[in-house]
């Protein structure tokens, strides 16, 4: 989210860089990219992935393959 400082910053590069590197008071702890672990997002994505697999299998094996007679040749 853009802070008032950022949104008021001039668009030329050196000035923008200065704003970015400026120490922000609302940062509690800085972590590296590897330390960032969005487990909740992973859990939601994983659940959605499982749902996709199960529903695809249901659609194919129950609604399609179970809807015989089918074309066999």
């Amino acid at each position: 989210m853009a802070t008032p400082q950022e949104s008021n910053a001039p668009t030329d590069a050196p000035a923008a860089e200065a704003v970015m590197s400026e120490e922000r008071s609302d940062i509690v702890r800085e972590i590296s990219l590897e330390e960032f672990t969005p487990s909740g997002t992973l859990a939601v994505t994983g659940a959605y992935f499982l749902l996709l697999l199960v529903l695809y299998a249901l659609m194919y094996f129950v609604e399609f393959a179970g809807n015989g007679p089918s074309i066999i040749n």
Binding site: T45, G46, F49, L52, L53, Y56, A57, Y60, F61, F64, A65, S70, I71, I72, N73
Partner: peptide, 24 residues
């Protein structure tokens, strides 16, 4: 996981064609 999903969907269709004899 995305690549795995594509492989599973393709695999199921091939399985249907070969093992379940579902032709077009």
């Amino acid at each position: 996981l995305s690549l795995f999903l594509i492989a599973v969907c393709t695999g199921i269709v091939i399985y249907g064609f070969v093992a379940l004899d579902l032709k077009v």
